[in-house]
Simulated assay, not measured.
Amino acid sequence: MASTACITSVTAPGDAVGLRERARGALLGLAVGDALGAPAENMRPSQIRARWGRVTGYVAEKPAGTDDTEYAIFSGLLLARHGSALTPAHVEAAWHQWIAGRAEGPFRGAGFSERGTLENLRRGLAAPVSAQHRHAWSDGLAMRAAPFGVFAAGRPAEAARLVAVDGSVSHDGEGIHGGQAVAAGVAAAMAGASPVAVVAAALAVVPEDSWTARSLRRAVTVAHRGERAVRSAVVIGGYPWTDLAPEAVALAFGAYAAADGDFRDAVLTAVNMGRDADTTAAVAGALAGATQGVSAIPPEWAAPIGPARGTCLPSMAGHHILDVAELLIPDEDRRWDTTGSTLAPHKTEALS
Rank of each mutant, 00 (worst) to 15 (best):
F148E: 00
H133L: 11
S84T: 13
Q132C: 12
D166F: 06
W137V: 11
L162P: 03
A164G: 12
W137F: 15
R102I: 04
A145I: 14
D139I: 05
A131Y: 01
E104R: 13
S168Y: 03
D139K: 04
G149Q: 09
A136I: 00
D166V: 02
F151Q: 05
A153H: 06
A160W: 08
G140V: 05
G140I: 09
L162M: 12
G124I: 12
A189R: 04
M143T: 05
P106G: 00
A183V: 14
F151E: 14
E92D: 04
A189Y: 12
A110H: 02
R134S: 13
R155L: 15
L118R: 09
H96C: 08
S168A: 12
H171D: 06
G101Y: 13
R134G: 15
A164I: 05
I176V: 15
A188H: 06
A159W: 02
G101D: 05
G111R: 08
A89C: 05
G173A: 15
S138H: 11
V165N: 10
G116P: 09
A110Y: 14
S113A: 14
R161V: 00
P147V: 02
D172F: 11
Q132W: 12
R161E: 09
G179W: 03
S138F: 05
V186S: 10
A85I: 03
H133G: 13
L118N: 04
A187D: 09
G178I: 07
A142K: 08
S168G: 11
G167K: 08
E174R: 14
W95Q: 03
I99T: 00
G178Q: 10
I99M: 10
R161M: 01
R108Q: 09
R115K: 07
A160T: 13
L121Y: 14
W95V: 02
A189L: 11
A136G: 09
A183S: 03
A142G: 02
G178H: 04
E119G: 04
G173K: 15
G109L: 14
A110Q: 07
R122C: 00
A181D: 08
H90Y: 04
G83D: 06
A110E: 13
D172H: 14
G167F: 09
P128W: 07
F107W: 15
A126C: 12
S113M: 10
H96S: 00
A146M: 01
G124D: 15
W98N: 06
A183L: 07
P128Y: 02
D139T: 03
F151I: 13
V186E: 12
G116C: 05
V186C: 11
T117N: 02
L86S: 03
R123W: 06
A146N: 04
G173T: 15
A89I: 03
S170W: 06
G83V: 10
P128I: 05
G105Y: 10
Q97N: 03
A152H: 06
I176F: 01
A152Q: 06
E114N: 10
A136V: 04
L118C: 02
G124M: 10
A160F: 10
A188F: 11
T87L: 09
A164D: 11
F107N: 13
W98I: 00
R161A: 05
A127E: 02
W95C: 04
H90M: 03
T117L: 14
G105D: 03
S113P: 08
S138Y: 01
